[in-house]
Design a protein around this nucleic acid. Sequence first.
DNA 1: CTGGATCCTCATCGATACTG
DNA 2: CAGTATCGATGAGGATCCAG
Lengths: 122, 122
Amino acid sequence: MTNDLEDNMIDFEQPCPIRDVLDRIGDQWSLLVLKALEIQTLRFNSLHREIGDISRQMLSRTLKKLENDGYISRTIYAEVPPRVEYTLTDLGGSFLKPMNILIQWANDNHEAICLARKNLSQ
Amino acid sequence: MTNDLEDNMIDFEQPCPIRDVLDRIGDQWSLLVLKALEIQTLRFNSLHREIGDISRQMLSRTLKKLENDGYISRTIYAEVPPRVEYTLTDLGGSFLKPMNILIQWANDNHEAICLARKNLSQ
DNA sequence: CTGGATCCTCATCGATACTG
DNA sequence: CAGTATCGATGAGGATCCAG
């Protein structure tokens, strides 16, 4: 009797781990930030340029949330002008492994989803 | 020169496949519904009981969205009283494979995330 | 350069009541 | 049994201005 089923089940009771994760990275920007930092360490304005259409306001909030959950780390250099670098933590890198599989699935099946949406609009 | 990097990148241009997926699945209930249907086909009220604290309103909306994207199928039986069964489609089952990996990651790392949150509140 | 503070808008979600 | 309609609350996200 293995506990495969149990491992695979969602715990409907509080706290729900996957809910914690989805609530944090399910927003509009978190995943884009993580994917940008997966390539390389970046500072605030570099991230802003990289992502493009995010406001500085939302970038700031997103970074703080990701840092609070341990996905990224923030390093301040006491220079003039100030420099702040954001780096993926081990936890963040670990998270991107299963997440990249899901991203790959999304890329592979995007056509099927679009097709399903079109079919119902006929 | 492989295209591994390209496969792994998020397309910042529209439409973004992973955004389509996260927008649909990132809400409060979709994943719970899919996980419930992963076990077995269920009818509306069975799902309602199974998930527990979802309102019929939200269950109805969630089911419709999932059906629209092809994750589940809806079968109506012309009986009295009416019977409607919801089943996972091939696409839905396919989606749960990478998703289950992510769920497993969330379970495994939930403690680390909680720890990160506590550390900052000190 | 790296943000915080404030105000605003809009989509989402819940509660309630109603229908075939 | 299986939903829909309507209304109100809530919070995510954007715009703008200000600060260290």
